[in-house]
């Protein structure tokens, strides 16, 4: 490739117009520098493509390892993958915010118009709370600065580079289940999904059969918000009546009255552990089968 061709190629790759004084057109040093620039520019594109393919699980182990070495990525490091889902297509502002938030080692991968992956590398192990706070910072920074509504999902911290592909899969599942089961939440951890993660794997027919067997002729969508939050808080408080009443700011007799009302509707006494389990599973399945 002569110098002119190199300049054209660089322009096509980077969108930047480079100009060289006439007397330097044949200068081997300038030629070498331009080749280096083109190689770096191509690497930039290659890097995004490599990460997309890697995260989507479309590379062989050898290709993953080859890319890792080519892009000088540490094999063993503490990393967390955050999958960011934008309500509207993301813009330059969002990318600027994400780049500015980084601590120096973030890898930002544009997956499609609505999804960006941020792979953050940490010097030390991070607690679940630290990771949640990092996700919350992303949500709040994009909301306040770029005015973008996003959801963020993540997996646990990985220690080996090749695990990131699985982290991406988990983050995708967390996002999907979060949208299905936890509408109001904007941050979804794969490891916080618990029973939802398990029940999502059963077939729709099995789910419907369970609902028909345990709660015939009862529709969970007919429950009002008050009853829903009462049940949710009762479960969060391990079925403890006193703690639940306190958190709901109601007298324990009011809570008992509500639980009796639910028992009349469904036959389930939520003070009883077995009935509570049936209710918990049925509520998740009712969302899932909708």
């Amino acid at each position: 490739m002569n110098t002119n061709e190199l300049l054209q190629k660089l322009n096509a790759t980077t969108g930047i117009s480079f100009s060289i004084p006439k007397e330097d057109m044949e200068n081997p040093e300038v030629h070498a520098k331009l080749e280096e620039l083109l190689s770096s520019a191509n690497n930039g594109t290659d890097r995004d493509f490599y990460f997309q393919q890697f995260l989507l699980g479309q590379l062989t182990d050898e290709e993953v390892e080859g890319g890792r070495l080519r892009f000088h990525l540490e094999k063993n490091a503490n990393r967390v993958l955050f999958l960011i889902a934008f309500k509207s297509p993301f813009d330059e502002m969002s990318l600027s915010v994400l780049s500015s938030l980084e601590t120096g080692n973030d890898i930002i991968v544009e997956m499609d118009k609505h999804h960006i992956v941020v792979i953050r590398q940490y010097r030390s192990h991070q607690s679940e709370e630290d990771i949640y706070n990092a996700a919350a910072s992303i949500v709040d920074a994009l909301g306040t600065e770029a005015m973008q509504a996003v959801r963020v999902s993540y997996d646990k911290m990985s220690s080996e580079f090749r695990e990131l592909s699985l982290s991406y899969k988990h983050a995708e599942v967390a996002l999907h289940l979060g949208v299905t089961f936890k509408n109001g939440k904007r941050i979804h951890s794969y490891h916080d999904l618990g029973l939802e993660k398990l029940l999502y794997r059963i077939s729709l027919d099995d789910a419907k059969e369970y609902l028909d067997e345990n709660l015939p002729s009862f529709d969970f969508s007919s429950l009002d918000n008050e009853m829903r939050s009462t049940i949710k808080i009762l479960f969060n408080n391990q079925l403890n009546i006193a703690d639940t009443a306190k958190e709901l700011y109601i007298h324990r007799n009011t809570l008992i009255y509500r639980l009796d009302k639910f028992q009349k509707l469904t036959g389930l006494d939520l003070r009883n552990f077995d009935d509570a389990i049936i209710c918990k599973v049925a509520m998740i399945l009712a969302e899932y089968t909708k």
């Binding site: 938030l101 601590t103 706070n133 709040d140 306040t144 600065e145």
Partner: peptide, 25 residues
């Protein structure tokens, strides 16, 4: 304009640049 719970300042920017960032973009 919004101020949220998990505000994150940009670690590599000065106070000035942190405040100016939203206007710059």
């Amino acid at each position: 304009a919004m101020v949220f719970q998990n505000y994150a300042l940009y670690p590599h920017m000065t106070v000035y640049d942190n405040m100016a960032f939203g206007l710059k973009i």
